[in-house]
C-alpha cells in the first residue's frame, strides 16, 4: 500500500425527494488518500459538509465489502465506477488521478424511483423474486440432503448465477433499463438444480411478467449489463431465461 494523496472535483446529483427536480452540486475534494475506498472518500466530504451545517450527500451502503448490494452509483458514466467486477464500496481511490473531475449520479430507471440524492428504491427487484424466484418448499418438508445428488458442474453453474447481489447496476447500464440479467440469474440458478425443476415453467412465466409489469425495458442484446456487473454474471443467463421461457410456453398447461 503505497499511500499518496490526490485532489479531485466532485459533481454530485442532489435531489431532495422523489418528486422534486434534481441538480448537480460541485465540491472540491482535496487531499484524498489513494488508499481510501470510494465511499470513504464520500464520508470525508460528508463530514466536512456536516461541519459546515450542510446536509451531506445521501448514498446507500451497508456491508462495504461488496456483498450486500446496497451501494451503487454511476461514476463518470459507469455503474459502480471504472473498475471491472467491483462494487462502489470496493472501488479504491487509487483508480483516480489528481485533477480529475468525478461525476456521481444515481442508478437511473423508471422502475427505480429516486429516494434522495444517490439513494434509489429497488423494491421492484423484491417483487420479481416474489413472483417466482424461489422454490416452494416448506420448513420441515425437505428430504435428506444427499438423497438428490447434483452434478458438480451443475452446482457450480448454479452458484455462478446465484452470486448476484441485486444491486441494480445492470438496469442502470442498460439503454432500455432492462432487468433481464437480474431476473435471468435467478431463473438459471434454479433451473440448473434438480430441486428447481418442478416449478420451472411457472417460475419463468411469472417472473418475466412481473419484470414487464414493473416497467423495466426489454433486452436488446447490448450486453452493457454484463460489463458493469460487479459479480460477473454472464449474459448467457439471459439466453437460458429465453430458452426456459419458450420451453414453458410450449408446454403450457403443466
Amino acid at each position: 500500500m503505497a499511500e499518496k494523496t490526490i485532489d479531485l472535483t466532485l459533481k454530485v446529483w442532489r435531489q431532495e425527494s422523489p418528486d422534486v427536480e434534481g441538480h448537480f452540486d460541485t465540491f472540491p475534494a482535496k487531499g484524498i488518500s489513494t488508499d481510501m475506498s470510494f465511499l470513504e472518500m464520500l464520508d470525508v466530504i460528508n463530514n466536512q459538509l456536516e461541519k459546515e451545517g450542510k446536509e451531506p450527500i445521501a448514498f446507500d451502503h451497508d456491508c462495504r465489502e461488496g456483498i450486500c448490494g446496497m451501494c451503487g452509483s454511476v461514476v463518470n458514466g459507469h455503474a459502480h465506477g471504472p473498475q471491472e467486477a467491483t462494487t462502489l464500496c470496493q472501488l479504491h481511490m487509487r483508480k483516480f488521478h489528481t485533477g480529475q473531475t468525478i461525476v456521481i449520479e444515481p442508478f437511473r430507471a423508471d422502475a427505480f424511483p429516486i429516494v434522495k440524492d444517490l439513494v434509489i428504491d429497488r423494491g421492484a427487484f423484491d417483487r420479481i423474486i416474489q413472483a417466482g424466484g424461489h422454490i416452494t418448499v416448506r420448513t420441515g418438508q425437505a428430504p435428506e440432503a444427499h438423497s438428490v445428488p447434483v452434478p458438480k458442474k451443475k452446482a457450480d453453474t448454479a452458484m455462478d448465477s446465484a452470486a448476484c447481489i441485486g444491486c441494480g447496476a445492470c438496469v442502470a447500464a442498460c439503454p432500455n433499463a432492462s432487468a433481464s440479467l437480474f431476473t435471468a440469474a435467478k431463473i438459471s440458478q434454479l433451473c440448473h438444480l434438480p430441486q428447481g425443476h418442478p416449478e420451472r415453467n411457472r417460475r419463468v412465466i411469472a417472473m418475466v411478467q412481473q419484470m414487464d409489469k414493473e416497467g423495466f425495458g426489454s433486452c436488446s442484446k447490448r450486453y452493457e449489463c454484463e460489463a458493469v456487473c460487479p459479480k460477473e454474471i454472464k449474459v448467457e443467463n439471459i439466453t437460458t431465461m429465453n430458452r426456459e421461457y419458450l420451453r414453458a410456453l410450449a408446454s403450457s398447461g403443466e
Partner: peptide, 22 residues
Amino acid sequence: VNIIDQCVAQGVPFAREYGGYL
C-alpha cells in the same frame, strides 16, 4: 442436520464433489 436438508431443498448451491455429493 435439518438445516442443511432445508437449504439444499431451497436451491442453495453448496459446493459439491464430482460424485454430486456435498
